[in-house]
Amino acid sequence: MRISVPTIPHVVSSTKTNTITPAAAIERIASHLASGSVTLLTGAGVSVDSGIRAYRGKDGRYMNPNYKPIFYHELVADNSKGRAFSIPHASTATPDSVTGKLRSYLGYPLVRDTQPNTTHYALAALQHTGHINHLITQNVDGLHRRAIDHLWDDARTDARILELHGTLHRVHCQFGHVVSRDEFQDRLSASNPKWKAFVDELEATGKKPRTNPDGDVELEGVSYDDFVVPECLACLAQGRYNTNQKPELIFFGESIPQSIKERSFRDIERSDKLFLIGTTLATFSAYRLVKHALELKKPVLLLNVGPTRADGLEGIDKIEIATSRVMRDVVRAVLGRRASIDPVIVSLLNNGIHRPPLDDNDG
């Protein structure tokens, strides 16, 4: 089986774009959103200001040159390698040994504790006012939900936010039993007191490992062989011993459930326009939604720093500028006076962190 890692074609990644002033960007984005009926599609770039690294840098290349994802067929294979990966790890775990057993356990606390940034809350304001009526995200960090969950109940959030690639915050076994990630993390800690002490030391010293958007970490010189994965309690209650569990993520080579795929297409069809933020569209699951919108003659606006797979497509209006420089002012431009007198909107526009991760060369 040959499965390739999603990339941006070189001819696209070398495309040059013109610079734009924040004022001009705000005007163009506000004009696109003002009439409402917009579906929003977001990628890893949206969460960078929360401290979560994107996969790719401004040149469109992977920031980790040794990037080696774990593929779904390796995860589920009925052999030693498959059994080694039948655990709760992230989609970029290295398939060289049993490293997947621990890497997500070490990386998840960073994602769990990360807060929504100013862009998340600005977008939540536009969701709350109905200008963005559907949000599709490739991110698995749950930050879009956290930015608006104090305003909406679970049913409304589930109906308006589609997590295209799943979430880190739930774990399921091969038989469909689901538990919260926090509960599973606690069970992992109880089963691995040595590694729990290691995590506590990392948190106490502030020496957090490099973490990818899906919660996978980069560690060198560490042996993972003694990491214990607890059994699924629901399976155990049925008389079945089963440690084959993973986060509700879509792994490379794994198909998106048909119901999710169909809903993503419906969300495009139900809106008049498409707005893209912080995504290179390297994964086909996102790129095909853009193609679908273009086929339906819907206006498409793309806000992303660096090259994308859609560069050069006819019908794409692209703006290159950091979202944190414009999105709150976009909300003010769209909502006018309401942005300064509506207490909910005021609160959203005054909320959110801005803590982008340090570059690898920084201290």
Rank of each mutant, 00 (worst) to 15 (best):
G57A: 13
K58D: 13
K58S: 15
K58I: 10
R61L: 14
N64F: 03
N66K: 11
P69C: 00
I70E: 00
I70T: 11
F71S: 05
Y72E: 02
H73N: 15
E74T: 14
L75K: 05
A77H: 10
D78I: 07
N79T: 05
K81S: 13
K81L: 15
K81F: 09
G82L: 02
G82I: 06
R83V: 06
R83G: 03
A84H: 07
A84N: 12
A84G: 13
F85L: 13
S86M: 12
I87Q: 09
I87E: 11
P88V: 00
P88T: 07
H89W: 12
H89E: 13
H89Y: 13
T92E: 10
T94L: 15
P95S: 02
P95H: 02
P95V: 01
D96V: 01
D96P: 08
S97A: 15
S97L: 00
T99A: 14
T99E: 14
G100A: 02
G100H: 11
K101E: 07
R103N: 13
S104I: 04
L106T: 04
G107V: 06
G107A: 07
Y108E: 11
V111T: 10
V111D: 06
D113N: 14
P116Q: 08
N117I: 00
H120I: 02
H120V: 01
Y121S: 01
A122G: 10
A122D: 08
L123Q: 12
L123P: 01
L123G: 01
A124P: 04
A125K: 07
L126Q: 00
L126P: 04
Q127A: 08
Q127M: 13
H128T: 01
H128F: 13
H128D: 11
T129M: 01
T129N: 01
G130H: 10
H131M: 00
H131P: 01
H131F: 03
H134Q: 15
H134M: 07
L135E: 03
I136C: 05
T137S: 10
N139V: 02
V140S: 00
V140G: 02
G142H: 03
H144A: 01
H144S: 08
H144F: 02
R145S: 03
A147P: 04
A147T: 09
I148Y: 09
H150F: 12
H150C: 05
D153W: 08
D154E: 12
A155R: 11
R156Y: 12
R156H: 12
T157V: 13
T157D: 04
D158H: 12
A159Y: 08
I161F: 12
I161A: 00
E163W: 01
L164M: 02
T167P: 09
T167L: 05
V171T: 04
H172A: 10
C173P: 01
C173G: 05
H177R: 07
H177Y: 04
V178W: 10
V179C: 07
V179N: 05
S180L: 05
S180A: 12
R181M: 09
R181F: 06
E183H: 13
F184I: 08
D186I: 14
R187N: 03
L188V: 00
S189M: 11
S189Q: 10
S191W: 06
S191Y: 13
